[in-house]
């Protein structure tokens, strides 16, 4: 006679592991597909070729000149300005004058990277001023010096 209650069926508790790899691959592929590396840049809007040429008062323009050697000159000054001083000077002028246009002028043979360094400092000045509660429109102009 069968004795009930004495059935000892041991369940060996196995968790299916074979689909672990499927799950891992699914996650891997999901992250590969969804990851995008952000591209970072300094954005500007160029003036349109068709637009009229406006005359601007000289005191409303701050020239930052990148020389052939990569040195910076502000306005008509004879002594170069170091890259570290640019931000302070730009901020000072911008606080005084809300219509200020920053004109970044470069020698044709100036290294592009040096111009970008100056542009970076100018951009930083605008955002730092914004944080200090002084908001100014970004009025930046890029120009190549006429040397030939």
């Amino acid at each position: 006679m069968a004795r009930f209650g004495q059935r000892t069926k041991i369940n060996p508790g196995i968790v299916g592991e074979s689909s672990m790899s499927d799950v891992a691959f699914l996650l891997l592929i999901f992250f590969i597909v969804s990851t995008t590396f952000p591209e970072i840049g300094l954005t500007l809007i160029l003036p349109s070729k068709a637009g009229e040429v406006k005359e601007v008062a000289r005191q409303n323009v701050m020239q930052i000149i990148t020389a052939r050697t990569g040195a910076y000159f502000v306005g008509t000054e004879e002594t170069p300005t170091s890259i570290r001083q640019i931000k302070g000077r730009v901020k000072e002028r911008l606080t005084e004058n809300e219509r200020l246009i920053i004109s970044l002028e470069s020698h044709p043979d100036a290294p592009y990277g040096r111009m970008i360094d100056a542009l970076d400092e100018v951009m930083l000045s605008y955002s730092e001023l914004q944080q200090e509660g002084v908001s100014r429109d970004r009025r930046i102009s890029l120009k190549m010096l006429d040397v030939e």
């Binding site: 591209e39 970072i40 840049g41 300094l42 954005t43 500007l44 809007i45 160029l46 003036p47 349109s48 070729k49 990148t66 470069s106 020698h107 044709p108 043979d109 100036a110 290294p111 592009y112 990277g113 111009m115 970008i116 542009l119 970076d120 890029l142 190549m144």
Partner: peptide, 26 residues
């Protein structure tokens, strides 16, 4: 280390093509 001249020439062409939004990737 590129010369600014080339960038300027390229920007000039962009202005003619009316592509005015530019960004300098850094």
């Amino acid at each position: 280390a590129a010369r600014y001249r080339v960038v300027n020439q390229a920007m000039d062409r962009l202005k003619r093509a009316n592509a005015l939004r530019v960004s300098f990737t850094t």
